[in-house]
Design a protein around this nucleic acid. Structure first.
Lengths: 221, 221
DNA sequence: GACAGGTCACGAAGGTCA
DNA sequence: TGACCTTCGTGACCTGTC
């Protein structure tokens, strides 16, 4: 780092840090707190450090990105990240977030987000088994499935029932009766190699439809 | 220009820019916004400075060109760039864009453009049709689907391919071959009412599996 | 209350076409 | 060339969990 930019950078850092210490010590008023990343008004501690809404949002979006994958746009990795000057260099901004102590570990994982979302919604027990035994008659199997389906549906929250209904109706509109007939009309022997290939192609075909199906559901990203 | 003065210069430029932003934000009247390059009505900040649509487009097209490669056509490098007079001298216009502070760095690189494009998942055009005509042979239908699948897969980004592979393998693990055989082994006539009910129950059964399937995909909420 | 994620209007990039 | 369009990142504000 050259002496001029180093000087400016240190000046800002020191000035900001000084302000931060003073205000936090003085009292709990959030109004006076300063973001240690860009000097803007801090909203509280985000991902471990006192920071503003913008830096919080930025880290929320990009905290898990790989720093190596990006280049500095301006000053060779020495951009001053200050809300009064610029926060435009993606790389330098992320680097500063990390250098100032923002913690990736405090970003919630997908599982954690899912877990939080469904707190209060009764989950289906993991050991709930929808399989029927091979010794049962075809009709009995279907009966068991229907009964289990009933039990399953009754244990669901309204949101889940609505979601399932949405999935079901979308499913029916894409995997329509023609589609069903198209394959159930054909006699397939599992011993026949060509039929097995056909069955795999059937799988591929259904997978393709599934892609269409999944894309059509609004809850699907 | 040495790095220290360059740094100070940039600081001032940015400071002026900040002031401009503040002025614009304070009085929201669009009428008052003037392109600092040609005096036309500004549309906002483009490449760092308050400018009009024309100057934005001009810099977008030519910002990366080398100024030295062009000569002033009229007044020996002293053309007045004003929308009421003329914006026709390429060299003087580009020079003025740069002098007034338009930043080449804010033109996205090819990598950046590609990256941005692939951040969001590229959607399949709504008119993309995976249906085959009823008059076609079964083999031909599969062939068409396979070909379309090929075209489809080749147009996808890496993330999409990965996602689809994830969906496909999850699909195969849930709708396994036994499942496939279970239904394809049976001869179903669409004219038979009991078979039709059976077909609907089949649909229900698959829908149930689909719920399981959908829950197992991480991108599914 | 503090701090996670989520939402959405807006600004500023690139793209298109007369 | 420039008006208009689409896309995506930003940041203010909101919601939900602990």
């Amino acid at each position: 780092m050259n002496s001029a930019s180093e000087h400016v950078s240190k000046w800002f850092t020191n000035n900001i840090e000084q302000k931060q210490i003073e205000t936090v010590k003085r009292g709990k008023k959030v109004i006076d707190r300063i973001c240690i990343i860009c000097g803007d008004k801090a909203i509280g501690f985000n991902y471990g450090i006192l920071s503003c809404a913008s830096c919080k949002a930025f880290f929320h979006r990009n905290g898990n990105e790989d720093l190596k994958a990006f280049k500095c746009l301006f000053n060779g990795d020495q951009c001053v990240i200050d809300y009064r000057i610029s926060r435009k260099c993606y790389r330098c901004r992320l680097k500063r977030c990390l250098n100032m102590g923002m913690k990736k570990e405090l970003l919630l994982s997908q599982e954690e987000i899912q877990r939080r979302k469904h707190v209060g919604i009764k989950r289906i027990p993991a050991n709930f088994n929808i399989k029927s035994t091979p010794s049962m008659l075809e009709e009995d199997k279907l009966l068991v499935n229907t009964k289990q389906e009933d039990i399953l549906l009754k244990s669901l929250a309204l949101e889940e029932t609505t979601l399932i209904e949405q999935i079901r109706s979308t499913f029916l509109s894409i995997f329509d009766n023609d589609q069903c007939t198209e394959f159930t009309d054909r006699v397939v022997s599992p011993d026949d190699a060509s039929e097995l290939i056909c069955c795999l192609q059937f799988n591929n075909h259904v997978a393709l439809r599934l892609i269409k199906f999944c894309r059509s559901i609004e809850y699907f990203e």
